[in-house]
Nucleic acid binder design. Structure first.
Lengths: 306, 306
DNA sequence: CGAGTTTGTCGGCCTTTCCGACAAGCGTT
DNA sequence: AACGCTTGTCGGAAAGGCCGACAAACTCG
């Protein structure tokens, strides 16, 4: 993957290939499709343990991986340590203290690690990928584990896992066994392609949109918190009248209130916005009972790919 | 002050007015030149206490200031809290948890505050300024207290305090009784306009500059450390031959050595550079005795405005 | 299957940070 | 002077985070 991806080329090259359980347990990704005796020197991947993601400690770096991939430590220091700088897919810089200590000796990332874990909201089972790009910069990607289907409440999903899916793919290493097959171009549309069915239904049938309507929308900030931005709908049209003639999908163009709007997309998805209507959203015209037949009818599905 | 200051307009509008001791003790700056019954709603300033700067706790926000300036809290929450985002003069974003709690209730900035304090190296006695600009963004400035004259070694003065001096001035609020009267436009020239007289004299009379000469210059980095960059003088001319015909001020254009030069100005001040000359700077042609008549003659002045 | 290596988890300990208690300081009556 | 309101500082408690100890898990012969 070339760092200045601006076109759709990567989109066309993407291939997502499920791994079998044994492959999935292998922490090291094959450098080429199978044929490779030595481990590659330019990246490693590790699935995070409970200790790695706990606030109690740092990140335990697999020894061979650290020695292959990280810059060599100065062993005249006691203990040997250095600062690692890595950048994520958003070109945000992360700094880690890399130290070699303990009895027996082991490589650890300490200071800076917990900030990264909490910012990315990583949990045990997720993976991190350290990889050198052709510009000799250390990149840092994440891949979230298949979340157990316990609860995925109406929280904001992260698009990061998809971003890194792309990165790993370009490194000939992308793989996922998640239940949703995705097809994703983060530059073209940062919105999630996979949403809970209930959210979709609520948006399509309970949100009456029109030009001029005011709304709010949640955004993840870099710091993992969530912010609301307000805006006005400026245009509503069919996304693709030819191929999706009967689709409920509408192309919704909006204007953002604040001057920092450049960071936010000119189009949004219907299910992402929260209308700020002063009238009570047609309570009688659209009684709640319309909701339940739908839910029971498609109860087997828990998500819908749009 | 308009945030998109690119011209010299602000330079012309600036008026710095010393405050008497009583006014200085007043934490709130007058909004207009004296005539103003209500406090302005768009900014406040506070001198930091020992508790504010200790690692033990957060920042205690003066109640009236918080209620005037900060976005209103949602008092249905218990306790009421929100995230505040402010940007400093470098457009760096700082996030704070703003909470209203305790018995008696008070406004506090907790999470994020200590990071800010340590990043800016604030100590008790320094001031912070929260101010809304016309783009509806919250800005955050600092003004360092006059350090007790213990030691101000040959270190680089902080430009932050001057930046914020300008900001406050443009908000009709700048005031200082510091020993240097300043006259400052940070965009046109990020160099300090106020320098110790001795530094000025040394630069003008003891530094012989010429095109092609190599030099070093100190810069503050974001991380509070100081770095030396090297460069070459590419052009020397009178700053303004018409209005300052007899001035010793020279416009010195330079080229920087490293590829990160874009971050550094194309012009420098004579007194900021450190020539790398191999010959001993005309020691006999400009004997030191010329220095003392100057000093005694202007002994009442402790600084010089250029 | 046994010895050596690697690494996940833990207790100990110190620092950071959040919290309300308390009282000093200040303005108003 | 007394009162009420504001806010600076403190002790306590919880959380964060660095450390080596220990042992489970893994590797290799």
């Amino acid at each position: 993957m070339h760092a200045d991806v601006e076109t759709d080329e990567v989109y066309a090259q993407m291939t997502l290939q499920p791994l079998n359980p044994q492959e999935q347990n292998d922490a090291y990704l094959p450098a080429e499709m199978g044929i490779m005796s030595k481990q590659p020197t330019n990246y490693f991947c590790k699935t995070l343990t409970a200790s790695d993601t706990s606030t109690h400690g740092g990140f335990s770096v697999p020894r061979r991986a650290a020695e292959r991939v990280f810059p060599p430590l100065d062993f005249t220091q006691q203990p040997p340590a250095q600062e690692l700088i890595a950048r994520d897919i958003h070109d945000v810089e992360w700094k880690f203290r890399h130290i070699f200590r303990g009895q027996p000796k082991r490589h650890l990332l300490t200071t800076g690690w917990s900030v990264f874990v909490s910012a990315k909201r990583l949990v045990a089972g997720d993976s991190v990928l350290f990889i050198w790009n052709e510009k000799n910069q250390l990149w840092l990607g994440i891949r979230r584990a298949n979340r157990t289907q316990t609860v995925m409440p109406s929280s904001v999903l992260s698009s990061d896992s998809m971003h890194i899916g792309l990165l790993a793919a370009a490194a000939h290493a992308a793989s996922t066994n998640s239940r949703f097959t995705i097809f994703y171009n983060p530059r073209a549309c940062p919105s999630e392609f996979v949403i809970p069915l209930s959210k979709y239904i609520k948006a399509v049938f309970h949100t009456r949109i029109s030009v001029g309507m005011r709304f709010r929308m949640l955004f993840e900030t870099e710091e993992s918190s969530v912010r609301r931005y307000m805006g006005t709908i400026t245009e509503v049209s069919d996304a693709d009248p030819v191929r999706w003639a009967s689709s409920y999908w509408r192309s919704v163009k909006v204007g953002w209130d604040e001057s920092t709007a450049g960071e936010r997309p000119p189009r949004v998805s219907l299910w992402e916005i929260e209308p700020l209507t002063t009238f009570p959203m047609y309570p009688s015209l659209f009684p709640l009972r319309v909701k339940h037949p739908w839910y029971s009818g498609v109860a087997g599905l828990q998500g819908v790919s749009v």
